[in-house]
Design a protein around this nucleic acid. Structure first.
Lengths: 349, 349
DNA sequence: CAGAGTTGATTAATCGATTAATCAACTCTG
DNA sequence: CAGAGTTGATTAATCGATTAATCAACTCTG
């Protein structure tokens, strides 16, 4: 029944050296009192045998699995790869593995996903909540990556500042009449981005917001956004809250024979993989996911280790805390490419 | 030190009922001999206490962690979310968790990623290998999702048949001169797709292949593909091996003032999220990822369970087998949207 | 009704690592 | 040189679940 593992365990090393397994454990962890020369011998034999500690054995004894859960409710989110990669890398550096739990885009299943992770005894959870979802007290340390304006947010990109950066860029090019394209007004992220853009409007500037979900409820899914008419109304800058919607706007304008960027500028958010290869390539704003992930993991690990240190007398509910970080927002970076340019001279004919 | 867990374990239930923990274990697993009424009482108290077995304890004893690893070396792959979601769902149905390991797009790091998973004692690994990588004997059960033409492939979409479906569609619309757009000729998936498309060429049909990576080595990254000239040379159908490249082609054509689909048809592969919202929406081919994942997980679980059943006397190397499935390819499905249409009438002026 | 067989439970070992408690052998110090 | 303190190790319990081995109490059968 016992599985043939990589071969070595503590007692094998111990037997080989004629010492107790406790001594081997102490030597390798550097915790107990072991003479320098014996410790060296232990390390040598461990290396020779290719010993890797059984995380299962350790987990059973210490109560910590060394695994974090990652919950990304909005699977359709094209940022998924970037986020997953960054989190995995940051966690791996901190000595943790990452278990994924998908909620198939369904808000109700988000709780299921979280429970599945908890059943597997994850030490903590990183969650990028679906729009509007409040993270209830879960009973295990959590780091939330959403937006700085969300209560309980651990760390996230500074979407507001990103909006400002895009708006400043467009304003400096001479644009005055903006169509801001969002998807769902319930999203904190989208609201921050739009708020940031609006906050940098020049005097006399105009910024209408087009919410795609509302538009589609009226005109049907995948319908045109009517950007040609907007252009005729004098809008020259089409600033979307995501590259996804920017792409939609760009192709709709191109299809209508409108030149980008000569006749209209288009901008996005997120710098998705294809943003740089389309023609014209997309001006956008990028988040520093690596840094966000590092901060989130660091904050989470801090809570986990504080939990363990404080011992078992603390009631479980107290451990259901949302991790806090000193820096809760990371600046976004403007990426100027080809879809933004000065507005066409006004047709004063 | 002991962590305050959800509260209940086998011995607590046992103590509460005044029986031994072995009996509780037997009652819940249905393995040993337990009277029907006692079994019922055990189940009732277990439910009452909200007992969930400690997977760590079980793992230590049985040598199986109930966790699978997922290796997706090409993180930039926009299919990532779909794949991860499908695998997680299939694994979850089979009672397994999914640990991710990212190799940051680097082939060399693929091995690192795999080793990290093995150190965490995953029971098996699902891998979508990076182009051209052969999966060496890993020392743990593996399921490979690549392409039917790859040796050692467990299951994958039938990329060849997908290519045929797209080609048949375009041929039936009247196209005769195709530009097939690929990225890297070392990719089995891309070669299958292109091979499939070529195999359905009508008599006298022409199909050139444009490999983007080679093109960019000459003309620089993100450079134009020169599709306008191709159109002038009589090419009417631009069939890419991925939606990503189809999007690149589409925007390049649109930017050059060429109407899609009136003047040229464009098709992709994969049905990525944005394919349906761009204008015109993209004709493409979709893989049935849910079914592929189900088959892959089923095959993997079969190997894992066979391993365990056969006991520990079998040398470890024997367990490094690639899982095989009865059905190793799953048909792709043509999705006709707006970017494909009949070719423009020949300018016989 | 003796002996075999069955039923329903318990005992005790085990998976690997960690760690508090203990202990033997030194080394000091006054 | 007795007693306190230190050093370097071992002992043994523990985390939770599983399971082979054992056992007591029945129920048959010839």
């Amino acid at each position: 029944m016992a599985v043939a593992r990589t071969g070595s365990n503590l007692s094998q090393i111990a037997a080989l050296l004629g010492v107790s397994s406790a001594t081997v454990s102490n030597a390798l962890s550097g915790k107990g009192r072991v003479s320098a020369e014996l410790a060296e011998k232990v390390r040598a034999t461990a290396a020779e045998l290719g010993y890797t500690p059984s995380l299962t054995g350790r987990a059973l004894r210490t109560g910590r699995t060394g695994v974090l859960g990652l919950v990304l409710p909005d699977i359709a989110n094209p940022l998924f790869p970037q986020i997953a990669q960054a989190i995995e890398h940051a966690a791996s550096k901190a000595g943790y593995g990452v278990l994924i739990a998908d909620s198939r885009g369904d808000v109700a299943l988000q709780t299921d996903a979280i429970n599945r992770l908890i059943e597997r005894n994850v030490d903590g959870i990183v969650i990028v909540p679906r729009l509007g979802t409040r993270i209830a007290d879960i009973g295990c340390p959590v780091a939330v990556i959403d937006s700085p304006s969300t209560p309980g947010n651990t760390v996230s990109a500074d979407h507001w500042q990103g909006g400002q950066a895009i708006a400043e860029h467009l304003v400096s090019l001479g644009h005055r009449k903006f169509l801001l394209i969002g998807n769902n007004p319930a999203s904190n992220v989208q609201n921050d981005r739009i708020g940031g853009m609006k906050s940098r409007l020049p005097e006399g500037g105009i910024a209408d917001v087009l919410w795609i979900e509302r538009h589609e409820q009226v005109h049907g899914k995948g319908s045109l956004l009517g950007l040609k008419q907007k252009l005729d109304q004098g809008f020259t800058a089409f600033a979307a809250v995501s590259d996804l919607h920017a792409l939609r706007a760009l192709t709709e304008l191109q299809r209508a024979g409108i030149g980008v960027p000569e006749d209209a500028s288009v901008t996005g958010f997120d710098d998705l993989v294809w943003s740089s290869v389309i023609t014209p390539s997309l001006t956008t704003v990028r988040m520093n996911m690596a840094e966000i992930a590092d901060i989130a993991i660091a904050a989470l690990v801090r809570v986990i280790e504080a939990d363990t240190a404080s011992g078992s007398d603390i009631p479980r509910t107290a451990t259901g805390t949302v991790a806090a970080a000193e820096r809760s927002s990371v600046p976004m970076q403007l990426v100027v490419r080809q879809t933004s340019g000065p507005p066409a001279p006004i047709d004063s004919a």
